[in-house]
Design a protein around this nucleic acid. Structure first.
Length: 273
DNA sequence: CGCTATGTTGTTCC
DNA sequence: AGGAACAACATAGC
């Protein structure tokens, strides 16, 4: 379920569980998630110890004492599991790090959309994927600059990892709901005040989600993503039904009453600019 | 059976 | 050039 807050939880879980232990073996149950890197991956990492971790957007990085960096992207259905080697390997475990203490760390990917591998540095990976700044690190000026000159709907822009990294489909909906802006509004029509609100909500929602350890049911009562998609809810603010549409090819939830479609201003220049 | 799904990438068309 | 639309990837659940 990994958007930025979930991946941050995975990072903390990893830090508490699996640092400073020698990797005695690596089991590759499904080579495809390594993207053809299987031999290098095993050779470079066997015998190493993880000493630190990092995160950039939805990507997790595990770094060894000899400065090898393992990247992990989880697709739609990935997670980590640290477990005693004496118990059964978890279902959908694709790559398993076996440590000398008889515990294993499994990279799990049910739908096989996730990928992992070894790179020389976080910076190298970020550059190769052309990722924008992490959604928790980006400044409002950098956010505004990254959107400058774009003409795409704001929801697609938020999901664009090259603009800012870490926003997924649910958080994009939540940001725009909390900001009161309809998802199809074009970035070119948003003024600096509106961009500021979107930026502030993005940070606030990320931090709130991390604060509840990414447990959806513990999100604030006025969040539309609190119950997931199985429960049809009414708008927490105006009580009218939440609309389900498709924007940018993704299922999209919004309130047509509380979220305004921002149109081009007739004057050609907007107030406050 | 048909449809949808917390994501990314590549193609094609405009 | 940039953006939209769409398919592909693999699997489960409704």
């Amino acid at each position: 379920m990994p958007e930025l807050p979930e991946v941050e939880m995975y990072r903390r879980y990893f830090e508490e569980a699996a640092l400073h232990q020698k990797i005695s073996a690596i089991e590759v149950h499904h080579p495809k998630v390594l993207g053809g890197q299987e031999q290098d991956f095993i050779e470079l990492l066997t015998g190493e110890q993880f000493k630190s971790s990092g995160r950039w957007g939805k990507n997790l990085f595990l770094q060894t004492q000899n400065d090898h960096t393992v990247f992990m992207h989880f697709g739609m259905t990935g997670t980590l599991d640290y477990y005693n080697a004496s118990v059964e390997t978890p279902k959908y475990a694709r790559v398993v790090f076996c440590f000398e203490n008889e515990f294993n760390l499994a990279y799990i990917s049910k739908r096989m959309f996730g990928r992992l591998g070894v790179v020389s540095s976080i910076a190298q990976y970020v550059a190769s994927k052309a990722l924008g700044k992490d959604a928790l690190d980006i400044s409002v000026d950098q956010f505004t600059e990254a959107l400058a000159g774009k003409n795409k709907n704001i929801k697609a822009a938020l999901l664009d990892q090259s603009i800012t990294a870490g926003v997924g489909n649910w958080i994009a909906d939540e940001i725009l709901f909390q900001a009161g802006i309809y998802p199809t509004s074009s970035t070119k029509n948003l003024n600096s005040g509106q961009l500021r609100v979107i930026y502030d909500k993005m940070k606030e929602i990320m931090q709130t989600a991390i604060g509840v350890e990414a447990v959806r049911e513990e999100l604030p009562a006025d969040y539309i993503t609190r119950y997931g998609r199985k429960i049809t809810i009414d708008c927490p603010k105006c009580k009218r039904p939440i609309e389900k549409t498709e924007v940018g090819g993704r299922g999209t939830y919004a309130c047509t009453n509380c979220q305004v479609v921002v149109e081009a201003s007739l004057s050609g220049r907007q107030a406050g600019e």
